[in-house]
């Protein structure tokens, strides 16, 4: 099997707010595939539909057109119960480590949550929690504490541990490092890579940051206004963008080097004046 997940012409529409308002089309026919063990980066700005695509794969957004095939079977229109059975295969790590963990539950209860669904015994569950904490490099006695006792980076590690609890084959990572500080961000990205090398899990890695995506992704898709405008190997898309929008995105991100940033600034201005730049100006 060479593809794990195959999205074909996925359309997501939210009903219009109010009487007779047209529905809002968040995704306008998006196609993308992920192979086992691969990281596919999804880059775009707010409103581009990147998060919606992630949520559609997770079954949290209404797919009104196209199909999402997972291991050869359409999962876009599953009933609630059948969808729940997929939990052990597809997991998630969200952006905000402060709201993705219930503040009133201990770490142990958060990590055993997916296990309870599988009727894992409590002794075995506790053992599994220790193992998971170890995998994400957290002290094994962290289980009795509450999320608020941890920093942002540690919380994101807990969220990753929760995602790993059921040994999934695909994890949707929705901006998992954008709320983190620079140094924490680098360490969490390393952890993502290390886990992938060890377990062979595939990632759908969503981010607004081209640099982060480049660092982690085998292939990269660039989204703009509900569509994928560029899609290909990571080094190609991020270093030699073809589509004007990707170029614009690439040139807009400031480089942490005063000399090179001055050059990029000039390139950005020149591009904005060109026809291609004008076509994708915000």
């Amino acid at each position: 099997m060479t593809t794990l997940l195959n999205c074909r012409d996925v359309v997501v529409e939210y009903p219009g707010k109010g009487f007779r308002k047209p529905p809002f089309r968040a995704l306008k026919g998006v196609s993308l595939d992920i192979r086992p063990g691969e990281t596919v980066g999804l880059v775009g700005e707010s409103g581009s539909g990147k998060t919606t695509l992630g949520r559609a794969v997770l079954g949290l957004a209404p797919v009104t057109g196209g199909s999402i095939e997972f291991e050869g079977r359409d999962i876009a229109h599953l009933a609630r119960r059948a969808r729940r059975a997929l939990a052990s295969k597809i997991q998630v790590v969200f952006q905000d480590p402060y709201t993705s963990l219930n503040p009133s539950l201990t770490i142990e209860r958060i990590l055993t949550e997916p296990l309870t669904v599988r009727n894992v015994g409590s002794a075995e569950a506790r053992k599994r929690v220790k193992d998971l904490l170890d995998q994400v490099r957290l002290p094994t006695d962290a289980g009795t504490r509450l999320p608020r006792e941890f920093s942002g980076g540690q919380r994101q590690r807990i969220a990753i541990a929760r995602a790993l609890a059921l040994d999934p084959v695909l994890i949707v990572c929705d901006e998992p490092v954008s709320a983190l500080d620079l140094s924490t961000q680098a360490r969490v990205l390393d952890l993502f890579r290390e886990i992938q090398d060890r377990t062979g899990v595939a990632y759908l890695f969503i981010s607004h940051d081209l640099t982060v995506v480049r660092h982690l992704s085998h292939r990269v898709a660039v989204m703009y206004q509900g569509e994928i405008v560029e899609w290909g190997d990571g080094d190609q898309v991020t270093a030699h963008p073809q589509h004007p929008y990707t170029k614009r995105l690439f040139l807009a991100a400031p480089v942490p080097d005063p000399v090179r940033q001055a050059e990029r600034r000039a390139a950005r201005k020149a591009f904005a004046k060109s026809d291609a730049g004008a076509a994708v100006a915000g």
Binding site: M1, T2, R35, P36, G37, E38, T39, L182, S183, Q185, A186, R187, L189, G200, T211, V212, R214, H215, L216, S217, H218, R219, D233, G234, D235, T238, A239, V255, P256
Partner: peptide, 17 residues
Amino acid sequence: AILDEETSRGPLENDTT
């Protein structure tokens, strides 16, 4: 900790499929 711009990960190596 700054991610450099030069190194990207490149395509998935075939042997994992």
